[in-house]
Amino acid sequence: MKNLQKTYEVTQKVERLFEVTVTQTDFWEAVLYISTQTEFNTLSQIACADWIEEEHFLLTYILTTDARDKNLMLKLTLGREYESMPSVMTLFPQAEVMERDLHEMYGIGFEGNETLYDFVLEQWHDLPPLRREFDTLAFVHEHFAFKGGREDNKDVKVEQKRRREEAKKQKALEAAKQEAKKQETEKQETEKPKEPNTHATDAEETQDKKPDTKEAEDGQ
């Protein structure tokens, strides 16, 4: 860890997760240094995110220690136009499958990896399907036909959003009501002398309210 902090700028994300950002040219040097000189000597995953708006991929090599108690994210950005990376297979043999997967799903090349042929998709001639310019729906409608009976299906995400917003509104209303009631009871309390069973009545009231709110939500 100290070695690492001397050479690279390390930010701590959460308690056991650290992050180092490098550039594409420094990558090989960095991964060589980290895997040999520091405790993070095993590769557990290579993640990739497609930032189409900023025109780059964000590759994250997740390295871990022998004891599996700390993780290091080694981040770098990579151009989207079918660029290639040096393969880390010589350091971590398990990278073979991960790189093959990335090659197939995003079209990233890995120099030094000999196995970049068909993996999960067999004889796939289209765009790599996880690139965001690949239009899944258009592909589906081009290659498959549906039977009747799907006309009434709704776009799930839009519907979810709508429901969530309505639930929020409902909650706000409920909260306002409760506020009003509370103020009323407070008024009563100030007028009346204190009674031991006021808490109980409060609880009963809230219990009564709960099923009501549920019904209201279901009704939408």
Binding site: P129, F134, V140, F144, K147
Partner: peptide, 16 residues
């Protein structure tokens, strides 16, 4: 297998 089911918009599964 009938009409795509919940994978109706997947590029990699057949529908019928």
């Amino acid at each position: 297998t009938i009409n795509g089911g919940m994978y109706w918009d997947s590029y990699n599964t057949i529908k019928k």
